[in-house]
Design a protein around this nucleic acid. Sequence first.
DNA 1: CTAAAATACTAATATAATTAGTTTAACGGG
DNA 2: CCCGTTAAACTAATTATATTAGTATTTTAG
Lengths: 194, 194
Amino acid sequence: MSPRVGLNRASVVEAAAVLADEVGLEGVTLARLSSGLGVRTPSLYNHIGGLDDLRRELALIGTRELGERLGRAAVGKSGDEAVVMLAGAYRAYVAERPGLYAASVRSFRVSDPADEERRAAEGEVLGVVLDALSGYGLRGDDALHAVRGLRSVVHGFATLEGGGGFRMALDPDESFRRLIAAFVEGLKKKLAKK
Amino acid sequence: MSPRVGLNRASVVEAAAVLADEVGLEGVTLARLSSGLGVRTPSLYNHIGGLDDLRRELALIGTRELGERLGRAAVGKSGDEAVVMLAGAYRAYVAERPGLYAASVRSFRVSDPADEERRAAEGEVLGVVLDALSGYGLRGDDALHAVRGLRSVVHGFATLEGGGGFRMALDPDESFRRLIAAFVEGLKKKLAKK
DNA sequence: CTAAAATACTAATATAATTAGTTTAACGGG
DNA sequence: CCCGTTAAACTAATTATATTAGTATTTTAG
Protein backbone atom coordinates (compact mmCIF):
# COMPACT_ATOMS: atom_id res chain seq x y z
CA MET A 1 0.00 0.00 0.00
CA SER A 2 2.14 2.82 1.28
CA PRO A 3 5.82 3.17 0.66
CA ARG A 4 7.48 4.48 3.82
CA VAL A 5 5.01 4.08 6.62
CA GLY A 6 7.44 5.91 8.86
CA LEU A 7 8.30 3.35 11.48
CA ASN A 8 11.30 3.44 13.73
CA ARG A 9 12.54 1.35 16.58
CA ALA A 10 10.73 3.41 19.21
CA SER A 11 7.36 3.31 17.47
CA VAL A 12 7.59 -0.42 16.85
CA VAL A 13 8.48 -1.13 20.46
CA GLU A 14 5.74 1.19 21.71
CA ALA A 15 3.16 -0.59 19.58
CA ALA A 16 4.42 -3.91 20.92
CA ALA A 17 4.07 -2.62 24.46
CA VAL A 18 0.46 -1.60 23.88
CA LEU A 19 -0.21 -4.97 22.30
CA ALA A 20 1.41 -6.79 25.21
CA ASP A 21 -0.83 -5.02 27.67
CA GLU A 22 -3.90 -5.78 25.58
CA VAL A 23 -3.41 -9.41 24.66
CA GLY A 24 -0.69 -10.58 27.02
CA LEU A 25 2.99 -11.02 26.37
CA GLU A 26 2.49 -14.42 24.72
CA GLY A 27 0.05 -12.79 22.31
CA VAL A 28 2.72 -10.47 20.95
CA THR A 29 3.66 -11.98 17.60
CA LEU A 30 5.50 -10.22 14.83
CA ALA A 31 2.64 -11.12 12.51
CA ARG A 32 0.08 -9.40 14.73
CA LEU A 33 2.33 -6.46 15.39
CA SER A 34 3.14 -5.85 11.74
CA SER A 35 -0.48 -6.20 10.78
CA GLY A 36 -1.48 -3.53 13.28
CA LEU A 37 1.22 -1.24 11.98
CA GLY A 38 0.11 -1.67 8.38
CA VAL A 39 3.30 -3.35 7.27
CA ARG A 40 4.49 -6.79 6.24
CA THR A 41 6.20 -8.84 8.90
CA PRO A 42 9.74 -8.82 7.50
CA SER A 43 9.70 -5.01 7.44
CA LEU A 44 9.91 -5.04 11.22
CA TYR A 45 13.43 -6.42 10.92
CA ASN A 46 14.55 -3.02 9.72
CA HIS A 47 13.89 -1.73 13.23
CA ILE A 48 14.30 -4.64 15.59
CA GLY A 49 16.55 -7.65 15.67
CA GLY A 50 13.69 -10.10 15.96
CA LEU A 51 11.26 -11.30 18.58
CA ASP A 52 13.90 -11.84 21.25
CA ASP A 53 15.26 -8.34 20.80
CA LEU A 54 11.73 -6.94 21.02
CA ARG A 55 10.99 -8.83 24.22
CA ARG A 56 14.22 -7.65 25.75
CA GLU A 57 13.26 -4.08 24.95
CA LEU A 58 9.84 -4.56 26.53
CA ALA A 59 11.50 -5.97 29.62
CA LEU A 60 13.82 -3.02 29.86
CA ILE A 61 11.00 -0.51 29.50
CA GLY A 62 8.94 -2.39 32.05
CA THR A 63 11.73 -2.44 34.60
CA ARG A 64 12.53 1.23 34.08
CA GLU A 65 8.93 2.37 34.23
CA LEU A 66 8.40 0.35 37.38
CA GLY A 67 11.46 1.96 38.91
CA GLU A 68 10.17 5.43 38.08
CA ARG A 69 6.77 4.73 39.54
CA LEU A 70 8.25 3.35 42.71
CA GLY A 71 10.64 6.25 43.00
CA ARG A 72 7.86 8.78 42.67
CA ALA A 73 5.63 6.92 45.11
CA ALA A 74 8.25 6.78 47.83
CA VAL A 75 9.66 10.27 47.53
CA GLY A 76 9.45 12.19 50.77
CA LYS A 77 7.99 9.21 52.60
CA SER A 78 9.58 7.00 55.20
CA GLY A 79 8.79 4.08 57.44
CA ASP A 80 5.43 2.36 57.17
CA GLU A 81 4.04 4.99 54.89
CA ALA A 82 6.86 4.54 52.40
CA VAL A 83 6.30 0.79 52.27
CA VAL A 84 2.56 1.18 51.82
CA MET A 85 3.01 3.68 49.01
CA LEU A 86 5.64 1.56 47.35
CA ALA A 87 3.47 -1.52 47.50
CA GLY A 88 0.47 0.34 46.13
CA ALA A 89 2.46 1.79 43.25
CA TYR A 90 3.89 -1.63 42.40
CA ARG A 91 0.46 -3.22 42.34
CA ALA A 92 -0.96 -0.36 40.30
CA TYR A 93 1.78 -0.69 37.73
CA VAL A 94 1.17 -4.40 37.28
CA ALA A 95 -2.53 -3.68 36.78
CA GLU A 96 -1.90 -0.86 34.35
CA ARG A 97 0.82 -2.39 32.20
CA PRO A 98 0.53 -6.14 32.70
CA GLY A 99 2.33 -7.00 29.48
CA LEU A 100 5.33 -4.83 30.20
CA TYR A 101 5.48 -6.06 33.76
CA ALA A 102 5.36 -9.67 32.61
CA ALA A 103 8.23 -8.96 30.23
CA SER A 104 10.24 -7.38 33.04
CA VAL A 105 9.83 -10.39 35.31
CA ARG A 106 11.57 -12.82 32.96
CA SER A 107 14.97 -12.39 34.45
CA PHE A 108 17.86 -11.59 32.17
CA ARG A 109 19.95 -13.79 34.46
CA VAL A 110 18.49 -16.75 32.64
CA SER A 111 18.45 -15.42 29.08
CA ASP A 112 21.57 -13.26 29.05
CA PRO A 113 23.49 -12.75 32.31
CA ALA A 114 25.82 -10.30 30.58
CA ASP A 115 23.06 -7.78 29.81
CA GLU A 116 24.34 -4.76 31.68
CA GLU A 117 21.44 -2.48 30.80
CA ARG A 118 18.94 -4.79 32.37
CA ARG A 119 21.18 -5.35 35.35
CA ALA A 120 21.41 -1.61 35.86
CA ALA A 121 17.65 -1.13 35.51
CA GLU A 122 16.99 -3.78 38.13
CA GLY A 123 19.62 -2.21 40.32
CA GLU A 124 17.70 1.05 40.17
CA VAL A 125 14.55 -0.62 41.40
CA LEU A 126 16.46 -2.32 44.17
CA GLY A 127 17.93 1.00 45.22
CA VAL A 128 14.55 2.67 45.47
CA VAL A 129 13.19 -0.08 47.68
CA LEU A 130 16.31 -0.14 49.84
CA ASP A 131 15.94 3.59 50.36
CA ALA A 132 12.33 3.23 51.34
CA LEU A 133 13.23 0.60 53.90
CA SER A 134 16.11 2.62 55.32
CA GLY A 135 13.86 3.96 58.05
CA TYR A 136 13.72 0.56 59.71
CA GLY A 137 17.37 0.64 60.50
CA LEU A 138 18.14 -2.48 58.52
CA ARG A 139 21.72 -2.95 57.39
CA GLY A 140 23.44 -5.14 54.85
CA ASP A 141 21.90 -8.57 54.41
CA ASP A 142 19.05 -7.72 56.73
CA ALA A 143 17.96 -5.02 54.34
CA LEU A 144 18.29 -7.34 51.35
CA HIS A 145 16.20 -10.03 52.99
CA ALA A 146 13.55 -7.42 53.66
CA VAL A 147 13.59 -6.24 50.05
CA ARG A 148 13.18 -9.77 48.81
CA GLY A 149 10.30 -10.21 51.17
CA LEU A 150 8.51 -7.07 50.13
CA ARG A 151 8.99 -7.80 46.49
CA SER A 152 7.71 -11.35 46.93
CA VAL A 153 4.63 -10.14 48.72
CA VAL A 154 3.68 -7.53 46.18
CA HIS A 155 4.68 -9.51 43.12
CA GLY A 156 2.78 -12.51 44.37
CA PHE A 157 -0.37 -10.60 45.10
CA ALA A 158 -0.33 -8.56 41.92
CA THR A 159 0.32 -11.48 39.58
CA LEU A 160 -2.28 -13.70 41.21
CA GLU A 161 -4.74 -10.85 41.03
CA GLY A 162 -3.94 -10.06 37.41
CA GLY A 163 -4.07 -13.70 36.41
CA GLY A 164 -7.57 -14.11 37.75
CA GLY A 165 -6.34 -16.19 40.65
CA PHE A 166 -8.71 -14.72 43.20
CA ARG A 167 -12.33 -15.58 43.49
CA MET A 168 -14.36 -12.50 42.81
CA ALA A 169 -16.46 -12.35 45.92
CA LEU A 170 -13.93 -10.74 48.24
CA ASP A 171 -12.60 -7.19 47.84
CA PRO A 172 -8.99 -7.41 46.67
CA ASP A 173 -8.17 -3.90 47.88
CA GLU A 174 -8.94 -4.96 51.41
CA SER A 175 -6.94 -8.16 51.03
CA PHE A 176 -4.00 -6.15 49.83
CA ARG A 177 -4.26 -3.55 52.56
CA ARG A 178 -4.23 -6.25 55.20
CA LEU A 179 -1.38 -8.14 53.62
CA ILE A 180 0.85 -5.09 53.50
CA ALA A 181 -0.12 -4.12 57.02
CA ALA A 182 0.77 -7.60 58.22
CA PHE A 183 4.10 -7.54 56.41
CA VAL A 184 4.99 -4.14 57.82
CA GLU A 185 4.09 -5.29 61.29
CA GLY A 186 6.12 -8.45 60.95
CA LEU A 187 9.01 -6.49 59.56
CA LYS A 188 9.24 -4.41 62.68
CA LYS A 189 8.73 -7.25 65.11
CA LYS A 190 10.85 -9.88 63.51
CA LEU A 191 13.64 -7.96 61.94
CA ALA A 192 14.25 -6.04 65.08
CA LYS A 193 14.96 -9.20 66.99
CA LYS A 194 16.87 -11.22 64.41
CA MET B 1 9.04 -47.55 12.68
CA SER B 2 7.06 -49.47 15.23
CA PRO B 3 3.39 -50.08 14.83
CA ARG B 4 1.64 -49.61 18.15
CA VAL B 5 4.03 -47.82 20.44
CA GLY B 6 1.53 -48.29 23.21
CA LEU B 7 0.65 -44.77 24.22
CA ASN B 8 -2.39 -43.74 26.14
CA ARG B 9 -3.67 -40.49 27.55
CA ALA B 10 -1.94 -40.96 30.89
CA SER B 11 1.46 -41.74 29.42
CA VAL B 12 1.28 -38.81 27.02
CA VAL B 13 0.33 -36.41 29.78
CA GLU B 14 3.00 -37.76 32.07
CA ALA B 15 5.66 -37.28 29.41
CA ALA B 16 4.40 -33.74 28.90
CA ALA B 17 4.66 -33.08 32.62
CA VAL B 18 8.26 -34.24 32.71
CA LEU B 19 9.00 -32.12 29.66
CA ALA B 20 7.32 -29.08 31.22
CA ASP B 21 9.51 -29.38 34.31
CA GLU B 22 12.62 -29.76 32.20
CA VAL B 23 12.18 -27.08 29.57
CA GLY B 24 9.41 -24.91 30.97
CA LEU B 25 5.76 -24.84 30.11
CA GLU B 26 6.34 -22.73 26.99
CA GLY B 27 8.80 -25.33 25.77
CA VAL B 28 6.16 -28.03 25.68
CA THR B 29 5.29 -28.40 22.01
CA LEU B 30 3.51 -31.31 20.44
CA ALA B 31 6.42 -31.69 18.05
CA ARG B 32 8.91 -32.04 20.89
CA LEU B 33 6.62 -34.27 22.88
CA SER B 34 5.89 -36.62 19.99
CA SER B 35 9.53 -36.78 19.07
CA GLY B 36 10.45 -37.85 22.59
CA LEU B 37 7.75 -40.48 22.53
CA GLY B 38 8.96 -41.93 19.23
CA VAL B 39 5.81 -41.02 17.37
CA ARG B 40 4.66 -38.54 14.71
CA THR B 41 2.93 -35.43 15.99
CA PRO B 42 -0.59 -36.16 14.68
CA SER B 43 -0.57 -39.48 16.52
CA LEU B 44 -0.86 -37.60 19.77
CA TYR B 45 -4.37 -36.57 18.76
CA ASN B 46 -5.47 -40.14 19.36
CA HIS B 47 -4.91 -39.50 23.06
CA ILE B 48 -5.36 -35.79 23.69
CA GLY B 49 -7.59 -33.15 22.21
CA GLY B 50 -4.70 -30.88 21.31
CA LEU B 51 -2.34 -28.52 23.04
CA ASP B 52 -5.04 -26.74 25.02
CA ASP B 53 -6.39 -30.00 26.35
CA LEU B 54 -2.88 -31.08 27.30
CA ARG B 55 -2.22 -27.86 29.16
CA ARG B 56 -5.48 -28.13 31.00
CA GLU B 57 -4.52 -31.61 32.11
CA LEU B 58 -1.14 -30.40 33.33
CA ALA B 59 -2.85 -27.62 35.25
CA LEU B 60 -5.20 -30.07 36.88
CA ILE B 61 -2.40 -32.40 37.90
CA GLY B 62 -0.38 -29.49 39.22
CA THR B 63 -3.22 -28.19 41.33
CA ARG B 64 -4.04 -31.62 42.69
CA GLU B 65 -0.45 -32.51 43.49
CA LEU B 66 0.03 -29.19 45.21
CA GLY B 67 -3.09 -29.82 47.26
CA GLU B 68 -1.79 -33.25 48.31
CA ARG B 69 1.58 -31.89 49.31
CA LEU B 70 0.03 -29.11 51.33
CA GLY B 71 -2.39 -31.48 52.98
CA ARG B 72 0.39 -33.83 54.02
CA ALA B 73 2.57 -30.98 55.24
CA ALA B 74 -0.10 -29.53 57.46
CA VAL B 75 -1.53 -32.70 58.94
CA GLY B 76 -1.38 -32.73 62.70
CA LYS B 77 0.04 -29.23 62.84
CA SER B 78 -1.58 -26.03 63.95
CA GLY B 79 -0.83 -22.38 64.43
CA ASP B 80 2.53 -21.00 63.41
CA GLU B 81 3.98 -24.42 62.77
CA ALA B 82 1.20 -25.29 60.34
CA VAL B 83 1.79 -22.10 58.36
CA VAL B 84 5.53 -22.65 58.24
CA MET B 85 5.14 -26.22 57.05
CA LEU B 86 2.56 -25.23 54.48
CA ALA B 87 4.75 -22.47 53.12
CA GLY B 88 7.76 -24.76 52.94
CA ALA B 89 5.83 -27.46 51.14
CA TYR B 90 4.45 -24.94 48.65
CA ARG B 91 7.88 -23.56 47.88
CA ALA B 92 9.33 -27.05 47.57
CA TYR B 93 6.64 -28.08 45.13
CA VAL B 94 7.30 -25.09 42.89
CA ALA B 95 11.00 -25.94 42.91
CA GLU B 96 10.40 -29.61 42.21
CA ARG B 97 7.75 -29.38 39.52
CA PRO B 98 8.06 -25.89 38.08
CA GLY B 99 6.32 -26.76 34.82
CA LEU B 100 3.29 -28.30 36.46
CA TYR B 101 3.08 -25.45 38.92
CA ALA B 102 3.25 -22.89 36.12
CA ALA B 103 0.43 -24.72 34.36
CA SER B 104 -1.65 -24.70 37.53
CA VAL B 105 -1.29 -20.96 37.99
CA ARG B 106 -2.94 -20.03 34.72
CA SER B 107 -6.39 -19.67 36.14
CA PHE B 108 -9.22 -21.51 34.51
CA ARG B 109 -11.35 -18.47 35.33
CA VAL B 110 -9.83 -16.83 32.30
CA SER B 111 -9.69 -19.75 29.89
CA ASP B 112 -12.84 -21.63 30.88
CA PRO B 113 -14.80 -20.46 33.91
CA ALA B 114 -17.13 -23.44 33.59
CA ASP B 115 -14.38 -25.99 34.26
CA GLU B 116 -15.73 -27.69 37.35
CA GLU B 117 -12.84 -30.09 37.80
CA ARG B 118 -10.35 -27.30 38.07
CA ARG B 119 -12.65 -25.32 40.31
CA ALA B 120 -12.93 -28.30 42.62
CA ALA B 121 -9.17 -28.88 42.65
CA GLU B 122 -8.53 -25.28 43.60
CA GLY B 123 -11.24 -25.54 46.21
CA GLU B 124 -9.33 -28.44 47.76
CA VAL B 125 -6.21 -26.36 48.06
CA LEU B 126 -8.15 -23.50 49.56
CA GLY B 127 -9.68 -25.87 52.09
CA VAL B 128 -6.31 -27.17 53.22
CA VAL B 129 -5.00 -23.67 53.79
CA LEU B 130 -8.15 -22.56 55.56
CA ASP B 131 -7.83 -25.53 57.89
CA ALA B 132 -4.22 -24.71 58.64
CA LEU B 133 -5.18 -21.16 59.53
CA SER B 134 -8.07 -22.20 61.69
CA GLY B 135 -5.91 -21.97 64.78
CA TYR B 136 -5.77 -18.21 64.51
CA GLY B 137 -9.46 -17.91 65.15
CA LEU B 138 -10.15 -16.20 61.86
CA ARG B 139 -13.71 -16.38 60.58
CA GLY B 140 -15.35 -15.77 57.24
CA ASP B 141 -13.81 -13.00 55.19
CA ASP B 142 -11.00 -12.56 57.69
CA ALA B 143 -9.86 -16.09 56.99
CA LEU B 144 -10.13 -15.59 53.22
CA HIS B 145 -8.07 -12.43 53.34
CA ALA B 146 -5.44 -14.33 55.29
CA VAL B 147 -5.40 -17.18 52.76
CA ARG B 148 -4.95 -14.73 49.91
CA GLY B 149 -2.12 -13.15 51.81
CA LEU B 150 -0.32 -16.38 52.52
CA ARG B 151 -0.72 -17.58 48.98
CA SER B 152 0.57 -14.28 47.63
CA VAL B 153 3.61 -14.40 49.86
CA VAL B 154 4.59 -17.94 48.98
CA HIS B 155 3.67 -17.77 45.31
CA GLY B 156 5.57 -14.53 44.94
CA PHE B 157 8.70 -15.79 46.60
CA ALA B 158 8.72 -19.15 44.87
CA THR B 159 8.12 -17.80 41.38
CA LEU B 160 10.71 -15.05 41.72
CA GLU B 161 13.15 -17.59 43.05
CA GLY B 162 12.42 -20.09 40.30
CA GLY B 163 12.59 -17.44 37.61
CA GLY B 164 16.06 -16.40 38.66
CA GLY B 165 14.77 -13.14 40.09
CA PHE B 166 17.10 -13.12 43.07
CA ARG B 167 20.73 -12.20 42.97
CA MET B 168 22.75 -15.20 43.98
CA ALA B 169 24.76 -13.78 46.78
CA LEU B 170 22.18 -14.01 49.54
CA ASP B 171 20.85 -17.28 50.95
CA PRO B 172 17.27 -17.70 49.75
CA ASP B 173 16.40 -20.14 52.53
CA GLU B 174 17.10 -17.46 55.07
CA SER B 175 15.11 -14.88 53.10
CA PHE B 176 12.19 -17.26 52.99
CA ARG B 177 12.39 -18.11 56.67
CA ARG B 178 12.32 -14.47 57.61
CA LEU B 179 9.50 -13.65 55.22
CA ILE B 180 7.25 -16.36 56.59
CA ALA B 181 8.15 -15.42 60.14
CA ALA B 182 7.24 -11.81 59.42
CA PHE B 183 3.96 -12.80 57.81
CA VAL B 184 3.01 -15.02 60.72
CA GLU B 185 3.86 -12.28 63.17
CA GLY B 186 1.84 -9.74 61.24
CA LEU B 187 -1.04 -12.15 60.95
CA LYS B 188 -1.32 -12.39 64.70
CA LYS B 189 -0.85 -8.70 65.37
CA LYS B 190 -2.90 -7.24 62.63
CA LEU B 191 -5.69 -9.71 62.18
CA ALA B 192 -6.39 -9.78 65.85
CA LYS B 193 -7.10 -6.10 65.88
CA LYS B 194 -8.91 -5.70 62.57
C1' DC C 1 21.20 16.50 -8.82
C1' DT C 2 23.05 12.33 -7.81
C1' DA C 3 24.89 8.59 -4.79
C1' DA C 4 24.24 6.26 -0.63
C1' DA C 5 21.48 4.74 2.98
C1' DA C 6 17.24 3.42 4.85
C1' DT C 7 12.77 1.29 4.49
C1' DA C 8 9.54 -1.49 2.66
C1' DC C 9 8.71 -5.26 -0.31
C1' DT C 10 8.42 -10.35 -2.35
C1' DA C 11 10.06 -14.93 -2.13
C1' DA C 12 11.57 -18.74 0.28
C1' DT C 13 12.70 -21.82 4.41
C1' DA C 14 11.81 -23.89 8.83
C1' DT C 15 8.96 -25.06 12.81
C1' DA C 16 4.58 -25.72 14.85
C1' DA C 17 -0.54 -27.05 15.39
C1' DT C 18 -4.22 -29.07 13.43
C1' DT C 19 -7.45 -31.75 10.26
C1' DA C 20 -8.53 -35.32 6.87
C1' DG C 21 -8.09 -39.50 5.30
C1' DT C 22 -5.47 -44.08 5.18
C1' DT C 23 -3.30 -48.27 6.92
C1' DT C 24 -2.84 -51.83 10.03
C1' DA C 25 -2.47 -54.01 14.45
C1' DA C 26 -5.24 -55.79 18.31
C1' DC C 27 -9.20 -57.84 20.19
C1' DG C 28 -13.74 -60.06 20.75
C1' DG C 29 -17.73 -62.68 19.07
C1' DG C 30 -18.98 -66.23 16.26
C1' DC D 1 -9.51 -69.91 14.31
C1' DC D 2 -11.34 -66.25 11.58
C1' DC D 3 -13.32 -62.02 10.57
C1' DG D 4 -14.88 -57.51 11.44
C1' DT D 5 -14.72 -53.58 14.31
C1' DT D 6 -12.04 -50.45 16.87
C1' DA D 7 -8.08 -48.06 18.01
C1' DA D 8 -3.56 -46.33 17.10
C1' DA D 9 -0.42 -45.24 14.20
C1' DC D 10 0.65 -43.12 9.66
C1' DT D 11 1.05 -39.62 5.38
C1' DA D 12 -0.52 -35.51 3.29
C1' DA D 13 -2.09 -31.01 3.41
C1' DT D 14 -3.39 -26.37 5.55
C1' DT D 15 -2.54 -22.51 8.40
C1' DA D 16 0.28 -19.57 11.25
C1' DT D 17 4.60 -18.06 12.79
C1' DA D 18 9.64 -16.36 12.66
C1' DT D 19 13.40 -15.56 10.01
C1' DT D 20 16.72 -14.79 6.01
C1' DA D 21 17.91 -13.30 1.33
C1' DG D 22 17.52 -10.41 -2.09
C1' DT D 23 15.05 -6.43 -4.60
C1' DA D 24 12.97 -1.98 -5.34
C1' DT D 25 12.19 2.60 -4.09
C1' DT D 26 12.04 6.51 -1.25
C1' DT D 27 14.56 9.66 1.36
C1' DT D 28 18.55 12.08 2.56
C1' DA D 29 23.30 13.86 2.30
C1' DG D 30 26.79 15.77 -0.12
